[in-house]
């Protein structure tokens, strides 16, 4: 999975927002809200260059950061990837 470029992740209070930041215009109607875990994974993907990210890599990050079993982490990672592809912020 590759995450798409040109997004800005902002945290305000408990909220995380992913905004498509164009060269000239930022469209808040296409804003994507994320929970803390999804935002953490997005940042991690970014750190790793955003390309060829696997559910297994994401599961490792989740296990390192949170108190979660590997089986559950892998399930969550797959769900997050499916979500991101569906809303158009990542591609297979």
């Amino acid at each position: 999975m590759n995450i798409k470029k040109g997004f800005k992740l902002s945290s305000i209070g408990d909220e995380w927002m992913l905004l498509a930041v164009g060269a000239e215009q930022v469209n808040f109607d296409r804003m994507i809200t994320m929970n803390e875990t999804a935002a953490f994974l997005w940042q991690k993907c970014h750190e790793y260059g955003g390309k060829n990210i696997t559910p297994e890599m994401m599961a490792d990050w989740l296990c390192d950061e949170y108190d979660v079993t590997r089986t559950l982490a892998l399930e969550d990672a797959k769900l997050v990837i499916a979500d991101w592809i569906e809303v158009g912020i990542a591609v297979e």
Binding site: S10, I12, M17, L19, V21, G22, E24, Q25, V26, N27, F28, D29
Partner: peptide, 16 residues
Amino acid sequence: PEMDILLREGKDVRFT
């Protein structure tokens, strides 16, 4: 407030 920051950076902001 987030829109305000982006507008100050010189970007246009679209919303409903």
